[in-house]
């Protein structure tokens, strides 16, 4: 699975650490780390919680297409 760099960028833009984001949405830091590194595919419920915490839409963080692809 590809890395989710957009999540990392959005989190950095809000000046939040993985731990702070994890505490905001009530998950472990390990889970945020796994999502960012592409090791875990979150549920839609968790995606929405992340988007709300970062003031972003699902498209902006999780949608993958040719224009918006994080594959390296």
């Amino acid at each position: 699975m590809a890395k989710n760099l957009r999540l990392k960028v959005a989190r950095a833009a809000k000046d939040m650490s993985q731990k702070e984001l994890a505490e905001t949405i009530n998950v472990t830091r390990q889970t945020i780390n796994a999502i960012e590194s592409g090791d875990y595919n979150p549920s839609i419920r968790l995606c929405i919680a992340i988007c709300k915490a970062l003031n972003k839409t699902l498209d902006q963080i999780f949608w993958e297409d040719d224009d918006n692809d994080d594959d390296e």
């Binding site: 009530n26 998950v27 472990t28 390990q30 889970t31 796994a34 875990y40 979150p42 549920s43 419920r45 968790l46």
Partner: peptide, 12 residues
Amino acid sequence: RKLKEPLDEMQI
């Protein structure tokens, strides 16, 4: 739900 399930979805 949060109180009943202290583990997150990846942990579960």
